[in-house]
Design a protein around this nucleic acid. Structure first.
Lengths: 226, 226
DNA sequence: TTGACAGGTGTACGGCGTACACCCTACCGT
DNA sequence: ACGGTAGGGTGTACGCCGTACACCTGTCAA
């Protein structure tokens, strides 16, 4: 009995993927289910399967969306600066979608967008003059950090609870070194409120530690035993 | 009607955790469900909840089991050798349970076994003479590698399929640098059949890159800007 | 004897991914 | 004008998941 009404714009793979990213952005990755995504799009769950083969492919798709947000490599400057800048760009893309790292890690096979990114990254090293041999090992050494992963031990939410007064005392007794380090980190909180550590600083510290080491190996003409 | 029969030994938290580890060891992490675990133990699913609060706590428990397998720190030698050896021990524990890295990463809060491990790791640096400041940033820089994580971009199963002849050609066209690197890696396969890369070598390469950089910073009296 | 308690059971609910059969609409060549 | 085909949305159903809740049973202390 409803008049023709405005006919909703039909689904499309792209619309599905964008909605999936949006859904994960607010609500976290665990709220991205086929059923919820469908209802978000005002559609029955099975309708999605006309546009993505299954949930795995959906996840591959959202990974491609996120990776697509990484800036293209800059020009000029040396390989070191170019690599550094690109990785920081990747990191900021990952930070815009806090669930993305976890999803990328869960994939067993790289999507072609990821391959394209890796390809251009390898290119930066090679065109910077690094040998294939060194470039190969360097890619392994950088690992997922190349995609901007922080690789922290625990993403932790202690941002919400300060140190907790009593817990701190017990910590000091059982894990004195951890406690000492936590205290030291708390002092340096010239960053935001009580977040503890300056993630950006830590990331760049680690990144530069690696890049400097690589540069040293390169300059000394390092190569693996035969 | 069955006679009293031999009464099965009752469950216990430890028996549950051991069975969970065994179940994940063969069958992978996705085959570790409360229901399957229960049936493996000849018991009804809800029985498990008398020994673990919920699945999250079960996972925390299995993490503790795995972390408990890491060798205690060695004595003598310098901090660098001690750290190196301990991390390699952690790595071998993670390799014995290939699902463990993924599980540890999925936890949002460190179990106390992990904290104990971290504590002793921090201790190695501190007792080796590194400043609190440097130790702090170093712990961040090492990140999950401290637990033996490989941090490869993709664990990939290309071990089962060699390079695939046709795919390789297309790869060369679209991603020339990736292809070049893949070819280079394939040459060096002095390791096993066609696995491609020597994971152990790559891990130690990255580890030493970091440790050498850290040692250099330490010797030069590095400290963060105030 | 009683009663508390630890530990195993059975039933049930709501969520998940997705197989399969269906239907409706738009567009095609005749 | 007309039947055919195909793309895209639907409805139902299955088997899996984690787990809340009420229940039963055996053991041991008081």
């Amino acid at each position: 009995m409803t008049p023709p009404a405005e006919k909703r714009t039909p689904l499309s793979r792209e619309r599905v993927l964008r909605a999936a990213v949006a859904l994960a952005d607010d609500g976290g990755i665990e709220s991205l289910s086929m059923r919820r995504l469908a209802s978000e799009l005002g559609v029955v769950p099975m309708a999605l399967y006309k546009h993505v083969a299954n949930k795995d492919e959906l996840l591959d798709g959202v990974v491609d969306v996120v990776v697509g947000e990484i800036d293209p490599p800059g020009t000029g400057a040396g390989w070191k600066a170019a690599v550094r800048q690109r990785i920081l760009s990747a990191r900021s893309a990952l930070q815009r979608h806090s669930w993305a790292a976890q999803v990328i890690e869960s994939r067993s096979t790289p999507t072609s967008a990821v391959l394209a990114y890796l390809n251009s990254m390898i290119g930066l090293f090679r065109e910077g003059g690094l040998s294939i041999d060194l470039t190969h090992h360097v890619m392994h050494a950088m690992g997922s950090r190349i995609l901007g992963f922080s690789q922290e031990l625990f993403t932790a939410a202690p941002a919400v609870e300060p140190p907790a007064p009593a817990a701190m005392a017990q910590l000091a007794g059982t894990f004195p070194y951890v406690a000492e380090l936590a205290r030291a980190a708390a002092h340096t909180e010239d960053s935001v409120v009580g977040a503890g550590c300056d993630d950006q600083f830590e990331f760049e510290f680690a990144l530069d530690l690696l890049l400097d080491g690589i540069e040293r190996l390169h300059r000394s003409g390092w190569m693996s035993a035969q």
